[in-house]
């Protein structure tokens, strides 16, 4: 199971501007993390995805949450029991 998660996280990290990726379980515990990301973020990431799920409880499609701060982005998506969190940091070279 860990090997599969590891593979997915590695695939996430090779995407442009991605600096860190993490997956969390329904209890907000970190199942795996790669790159520059604090594993403790799993709890708050899970809480954010649970809060957003209250916005449209009848909508079963997973919502993607994106938090913007300058050239940094934190992307959170809950799909079923797993929540994924990705950190992106746009550098000047990626903007050109």
């Amino acid at each position: 199971m860990e090997t599969q998660l590891d593979k997915v996280l590695t695939e996430c990290l090779v995407q442009q501007d991605t600096v860190g990726a993490l997956v969390a379980n329904p209890q907000g515990l970190c199942l795996g993390a790669k790159g520059i990301i604090n594993p403790n973020v799993s709890g708050i990431g899970m809480a954010i995805s649970e809060q957003v799920a209250k916005l449209e409880p009848e909508n079963n499609a997973p919502a993607t949450i994106c938090l913007y701060s300058g050239n940094k982005r934190c992307i959170i998506q809950k799909d079923g029991e797993i929540t994924g969190i990705i950190y992106k940091h746009a550098t000047e070279s990626s903007n050109n």
Partner: peptide
Amino acid sequence: IDENFMPNSSCERITI
């Protein structure tokens, strides 16, 4: 969220 990545209260926009 994460002081090391985004300073506290620095989030200026959220999209869902």
